[in-house]
Design a protein around this nucleic acid. Structure first.
Length: 587
RNA sequence: CGGGGCGUAGCUCAGCUUGGUAGAGCGCUCGCUUUGGGAGCGAGAAGUCGCAGGUUCAAAUCCUGUCGCCCCGACCA
């Protein structure tokens, strides 16, 4: 039986909801797919459920093809497993916590690594049982500081999360690649463009991590890519190290007076005015900016570190956070400066007439890390560690050295890709999938070991693989619409055909009824607009809003056995016989 | 947490500056007409103007506080 609109649970809205900003949110609410319950939390209506199920079906098919088994965990979990891995604490305000009647702590799971690990530990003891990949499609809960954009960043969202278990690193690679391949097939079938970017793996201690980003202006992640195929998260981008320059023959360093130079621009201006260079003017790129940061480690230990970057580049806090993770990073405070009188605020540099205050021969004991571009033989204008004095022609490797390098400077369009594939551009993307080699972190913490072929206990190595189901759905909606409404790709459309009966002639309804029966017999999901006493304009507008890609209009030609095939995407309407219409869908 | 905007009928909004009977369009109910692009006419139902205090003869409107929502940022996989 077709789904009849006259009695379906559906109300479309004529106007955009006031609380929606992005297209997918507006249209999904207007067309009756979802309703908001609380910030970032939505109810799913029949149409929405159908699309969600279709997205999930594609994922299930590809998971099965990749040899993964579906399981299902509760969203409501006890505190203990997360306590063992320290994530109860690490997640901070990011998780929903609650207590039962006995005052015991529970949480709504933000992700399920712990319980999957424990499940395998429960049941498996031998290497012969591995490899294993299991997954679930489950609602996740994260108490986001700012949910936004409807389904695109919710506090409740549906995720497919898979976990692989292997004895060997090679096995993990294979499991990882199987999931990665499955993701490529899934996104291709969904018609979602994606780029695979190297992701920062530091935070979770894993060895390898890649994100699937869907390029879109409303994306929240900035990534870089080159025409030659390089793609990376900004945090994971590595700077191309230039060739070292000869030190011999470079002029000696000179200290100069530099009062009132609060910015790099004023410093450059003053240097050009008072100490011009013969071959070319000084620019911001000739200056070395030294920034003092305070790192706070999870242990509570606090460490100052100074990073030096070319003056024409800002320090990118996201990159810095990634570089020093899991430490928290903040700018040094006035207190910090007071405790370190060797640091002259505004005039910090890796050198001093009185002896090095920064770098390897540091007298301050503060680590000094440099941007990779500051290679041996490069000359810089930088602070002299004396109030109101800077120094120029300060040569790396001759006049100063550092304790290492750090990826802290911002990435800019035009920077060379590290793999030599050309200059990069910056683009916005939204994370729709993430594959991650976790390694043995969780297995170690939770004691997941199996006997190997030598009868010795071996700690299992794991991967975790996530796809944001509801986010994918929103991205598809974001991509497939026009000013009239949604236009679903056939692979995820809530119905295969939308039959609209219209006109005052009873025959139209009879012909439409028969047509629906034929289409159903051909195993198509049919939505039948059988609403009588409703003007045609309303039905057409609803059909366009709902967005089933194939529409059949049964109206004025019905008594002659003619119907119109209406392609929602192209807008094209073709009149044909009922038999031809059926044949078109069968073919 | 910082910045901005908004809370009035089921929905989208006007009214607030300058205090004086609570409004429109859509939706909903009933009747008649209408049926290829969100129909017409007529008759209706429907709101503690977010909440609390204050000023005033009188508060949707002015003042104070508070709660909530949306957006930008911070944060976040």
């Amino acid at each position: 039986m077709p789904t009849r609109l006259s009695s379906y649970f559906l109300k479309t809205l004529r106007e955009d909801p006031a609380d929606a900003e992005v297209t997918s949110h507006k249209l999904l609410v207007r067309a009756g797919y979802i309703r908001r319950q609380a910030p970032g939390i939505f109810a799913w209506l029949p149409l929405g459920l159908r699309v969600k199920e279709r997205v999930e079906r594609i994922i299930r098919e590809e998971m099965a093809a990749a040899g993964a088994f579906e399981v299902h965990f509760p969203a409501l979990l006890p505190r203990e497993p997360y306590e063992i891995t320290n994530r109860w604490t690490e997640y901070g305000d990011g998780i929903f916590r609650l207590k039962d009647r006995k005052d015991a702590d529970y949480l709504l799971a933000p992700t399920h690594e712990e319980v999957f690990t424990l499940l395998v530990k429960d049941l498996y003891s031998s290497y012969k049982d591995l490899p294993l990949t299991i997954y679930q499609i489950q609602d996740k809960y994260r108490d986001e500081a700012r949910p936004r954009a409807g389904l695109l960043r919710g506090r409740e969202f549906t995720m497919k999360d898979a976990y692989s278990f292997d004895v060997s690193d090679a096995g993990l690679d294979a499991s990882y690649n199987a999931q990665r391949d499955a993701y490529e097939r899934i996104f291709s079938r969904l018609g979602l463009e994606y780029v695979i970017v190297k992701a920062d793996a530091g935070a979770m201690g894993g060895s390898k991590s890649e994100e699937f980003l869907h390029p879109t202006p409303i994306g929240e992640d900035t990534f870089v890519r080159s025409a030659g195929g390089y793609a990376a998260n900004v945090e994971a981008f590595t700077t191309v190290v230039p060739e070292a320059l000869p030190i011999d023959g470079q002029p000696a360093a000179e200290v100069f007076d530099s009062p009132n130079t609060p910015t790099i621009a004023t410093l450059v201006e003053l240097a050009n005015a008072n100490h011009p260079r013969s071959d070319r003017a000084w620019t911001a790129a000739d200056t070395l900016k030294n920034v003092v940061l305070a790192l706070t480690y999870p242990s509570g230990e606090r460490e100052l570190v100074i990073i030096g970057v070319p003056g024409d580049r800002e320090v990118d806090m996201k990159r810095v956070e990634a570089a020093f993770s899991p430490a928290e990073v903040e700018p040094a405070t006035d207190e910090d400066f007071k405790r370190n009188p060797g640091l002259v605020k505004g005039y910090i540099g890796p050198w001093s007439p009185a002896g090095a205050v920064l770098g390897l021969e540091s007298t301050t004991g503060i680590r000094y890390l440099l941007d990779p571009r500051v290679v041996e033989g490069t000359a810089w204008i930088t602070g002299a560690n004396i109030d109101q004095k800077h120094v120029f022609n300060l040569v790396a490797g001759r006049d100063f050295s550092a304790d290492g390098t750090v990826e802290a400077a911002e990435v800019r369009a035009g920077d060379p890709a590290p793999d030599g594939s050309g200059p990069v551009e910056l683009a916005r993307g939204m994370e729709i999938g993430h594959v991650f080699q976790l390694g043995r972190k969780y297995a170690e913490a939770l004691g997941l070991q199996v006997l190997d072929e030598n009868g010795k206990l071996a700690t299992v190595t794991m991967g975790s693989y996530g796809i944001g189901v509801t986010r994918i759905l929103a991205n598809i909606a974001e991509l497939n619409n026009d000013d009239k409404g949604l236009i679903w790709p056939a692979s995820v459309a809530p119905f295969d055909v939308h039959v609209v009966a219209t006109g005052k002639d009873e025959v139209a309804y009879e012909v439409a009824e028969a047509l629906c029966a034929e289409l159903e017999a051909a195993r198509l999901d049919v939505l039948f607009d059988d609403r009588a006493k409703l003007s045609p304009g309303v039905k057409f507008a609803d059909a366009e809003l709902i967005g089933v890609p194939k529409i059949v209009i049964v109206g004025r030609g019905a008594s002659d056995g003619l119907v119109e095939l209406w392609d929602r995407r192209s807008g094209e309407r073709t009149e044909m016989s009922v038999a031809d219409a059926i044949a078109a869908f069968r073919g």
